[in-house]
Design a protein around this nucleic acid. Sequence first.
DNA 1: TATTAGCACTCGGGTATGCTGAGTGCTAAC
DNA 2: GTTAGCACTCAGCATACCCGAGTGCTAATA
Lengths: 340, 340
Amino acid sequence: MDLSDRSRDILKAIINSYIATAEPVGSRTVTKRYELGISPATVRNIMADLEELGFLAQPHTSAGRIPTDKAYRFYIDTMLEVKPVPEERIMKYSLPTEDFAKLMQETTNMLSSLTHYTGIVMAPKPAETVYKHIEFIRIDARHALAIFVSSAGIIHNRMVSLDENMTHKELEDLSAFLNKEFAGKTLGEMRSRLTAMMDEDRNRYNRLLSKLMKVWQESAGAQEATEADVFYGGLTGMFDVPDFRDIDKMKELFYAFEEKHRLVSLLDKAIEADGVQVFIGSENKFFDMQGVSLVVARYRGEGNIVGTLGVIGPSRMPYNQIIPLVDCTARVLGRLISGR
Amino acid sequence: MDLSDRSRDILKAIINSYIATAEPVGSRTVTKRYELGISPATVRNIMADLEELGFLAQPHTSAGRIPTDKAYRFYIDTMLEVKPVPEERIMKYSLPTEDFAKLMQETTNMLSSLTHYTGIVMAPKPAETVYKHIEFIRIDARHALAIFVSSAGIIHNRMVSLDENMTHKELEDLSAFLNKEFAGKTLGEMRSRLTAMMDEDRNRYNRLLSKLMKVWQESAGAQEATEADVFYGGLTGMFDVPDFRDIDKMKELFYAFEEKHRLVSLLDKAIEADGVQVFIGSENKFFDMQGVSLVVARYRGEGNIVGTLGVIGPSRMPYNQIIPLVDCTARVLGRLISGR
DNA sequence: TATTAGCACTCGGGTATGCTGAGTGCTAAC
DNA sequence: GTTAGCACTCAGCATACCCGAGTGCTAATA
């Protein structure tokens, strides 16, 4: 992408203006608001070039231009300068750490009130977190609740049905056994270990163990299980974004929100890379919506806890503020999860 | 409220017509669609009377009339005939009982897809459920996770900080002690019992116990704690209700959804009465929105588990279908929670 | 006395029309 | 290569208009 300096300046001016006003920007506006020592006519010529290159688009003939997804991408990759956010700005929200689910929820709310867009947090994946403790609690003769507790206090639980004749003592033994063998492992590790063990030694817990394995399989099988672990905050913020002040656009947006598994697929991709990632408009096939972008970052805590968090908003977003904010929030959340 | 039979018939016809079409209904429509052997002029006279009584309103001069909240209230109280819903209709959704939170969520989704409105479920209040088991799991030197498990497999957990010098053994003892003393009690009962005990015997767990009590207090203190236990399903359904096809109306609605505590206050009222309750439009001060109604019922399971569930939709709702549906869902959910 | 037919009136919604202003592209001059 | 000038485009807004559904009132009717 080789643009002349002047073209870059003009593109930048247009994007900045559009981010600020949400209005298509014309050649006159560019020359007036940004002192480039250039006449509108010249700007027009360059704008025509930029349009041909796919950076700009016209809503209609007699309107100014607006940046395309490609322009935002270029802008973010090559000419964005972010200033880091002081952590105090985020710390002062004093998120509650005594209840994990609540922490997740409050983080989305915080993201939302910091950005005025919709905050999103994906809880750490069960399959990849290290569990500290496993507990069985008998509910009735035929059922017990299996509880997995991670080092950060995250809890996953699942009802399992028991053999009729399993005694209280046996259940306790099983619990102790599992804790001894599996504490400090991830679900994934537990599963492979379990498979091996079941092969070599057909012990008496066999049936229950195989049931447990199924439970783990479900939890590990990304999709279904993790849908429950996507949190939104400040959905209403979207109503105040002028880009979405249209009932059908809004409807589309909320439908997308409700289909969490698409979002999960997308966020899963973000979990691998370090730093903040931006998905602009229809760049990705999972959350493919015109005019909607995501700014996402990974957070990490002790005990192999990894999740993602971010913001959903219009592509016309003040990235220079949103990106460092998401970045900082991810760091803070990671710390909160670890440090108790 | 003494209306002549004919007035009642006409009012009923108007309400039915408006529920079906969402269009203001005029005198001609009434005579044409409902055979009452009466001329439009007569209907007009009666409509004028009904308007004066506050049952009807005119959006503008040259439009037909629409029912007021008062009319819906009268309609539901005096002339609604519901036919019970066969439970199979609901059973076939096969809700998942192995994970309580998921059960709640899936119930809202079911309510939504049965009604095409927004489903809502309030989980049983922690303060009033009977707990079967209490467990402490040490997270690190200074923190433990307190886990409360109810007989239905509902889990509440809270991080508590420990005295530095509390040994593993002591924690276990405490756990055993609490289970012995408190299993089968509600949080409320536990609390009063605990207070009594702390007065008479200043034992070594005193400090931790008082901290626990604070935790319980929070959980019991309705508002904050129970907000997390309100589940919505099918928010997007609202976008397809013609009454709400307006961005500002929608915004108002979603703002109301986000303020869960208002809803909690309202649903708390419904928890006391048996049977289905209907809150029409601005009848109540908690969820006061023009044109929005709630149909709510209480569900009950074993172990003193009580919660509410229902549907949020336009006041212009086919109550004769929605009411029995909500009623039946409440019964089924109650059974699912109990029967394991 | 209650009901009804007739009629004038109201008013939202749709359509046609015209104007305005922001913005463009092109051309010719600098 | 840049710029001034000019003709052209088109969304948005306002105005005017008509249509039709619906009302309220009055006078005739059963």
